[in-house]
Design a protein around this nucleic acid. Structure first.
Length: 264
DNA sequence: GCTAAATGTTGAT
DNA sequence: TCAACCTTTAGCT
């Protein structure tokens, strides 16, 4: 269940586990058998996340490119791996450790050139230290598209998905329907900083929590599911800040949620 | 046990 | 703009 924060967290975890080690790859399901054979036994150099894409860079220059899509998941364990059941696209093992990949949108071998080609069509990733927000702003400021659409466009900004789109706009008090070219520089700067901050928190926590304690029903203890978001999937419920009904409508092919008062 | 929906992208229309 | 793809789970019965 991945937006960029999940991908960056996996990149760190998997690098800590496998970097510098020879890795065995197998595709019990068969769909990635040829690719797995090509990389099998090579030493993993590093992982390289960008937005929702993740590359496992192996010695020799070839990479494993994984995009989880909506459904993709990794499972991890050590000790004897379970017998492969169902559609197991890829199993990576090194020593006692194993990683199982199911349901990804993409799982393929990339050359350096192929990796560069994908990167070339991605906007800056708020979770990367080398991200240049000015590149995204250059697109936003001259676009007539709604900001709620631009945030979902991976060529403008890479890593934001449907949850962060809704929550970041709420936190900044911006209407999703504001055209990019109607945003001021301060609006954009605030939006970027908010995105970086919420997504970093997401990497740390391993999930998306965007509410401040004073806006939660339960103010102490673990943040339960109900309390984690301001507007995402809360259509018809009361806004946590102003009590207005949270609204929903499809924008850019996905269900958008927003408060018409806080985000006028 | 069934159905719909889901934190996503691509390619056809 | 819409269907297709991949899989799991929540919310029904």
């Amino acid at each position: 269940m991945p937006e960029g924060h999940t991908v960056h967290r996996l990149a760190r975890e998997h690098a800590a586990l496998l970097a510098g080690r020879a890795v065995r790859l197998a595709s019990p399901q068969g769909r990635f058998a040829a690719g797995a054979a090509l990389l099998d036994g090579r030493v993993l150099t590093r992982t390289e996340p960008h937005g929702k894409h993740l590359w496992y860079v192996f010695e020799g220059g070839l990479s494993l490119h994984v995009h989880l899509g909506i459904y993709g998941t990794w499972a991890r364990g050590s000790g004897p791996p379970p017998a492969p059941v169902g559609a197991l696209r890829l199993r990576m093992t090194s020593g006692d450790d194993w990683l199982d990949l199911r349901g990804p949108n993409a799982c393929e071998v990339h050359t350096e050139a192929e990796r560069a080609a994908v990167l070339a069509r991605l906007g800056p990733d708020p979770l990367r230290r080398d991200a240049d927000p000015a590149r995204a702003w250059a697109r936003v400021r001259r676009s007539r598209s709604e900001i709620g659409r631009l945030l979902m466009d991976q060529s403008v900004l890479a890593g934001v998905g449907n949850v962060y789109r809704a929550e970041v706009l709420f936190r900044r008090g911006l209407s999703p329907y504001l055209p990019g070219n109607a945003l001021g520089r301060e609006d954009w700067d605030g939006l970027w900083v908010e995105t970086v901050s919420l997504m970093r928190a997401g990497v740390r926590a391993g999930r998306i929590v965007t509410t401040r304690p004073e806006h939660r029903a339960r103010r102490s203890g673990l943040v339960d599911r109900e309390d984690a978001h301001y507007v995402y999937r809360r259509a018809g419920e009361a806004c946590r800040v102003c009590d207005t009904e949270v609204r929903t409508r499809v924008l850019a092919g996905r269900n958008l949620f927003w408060c018409p008062v806080c985000q006028a």
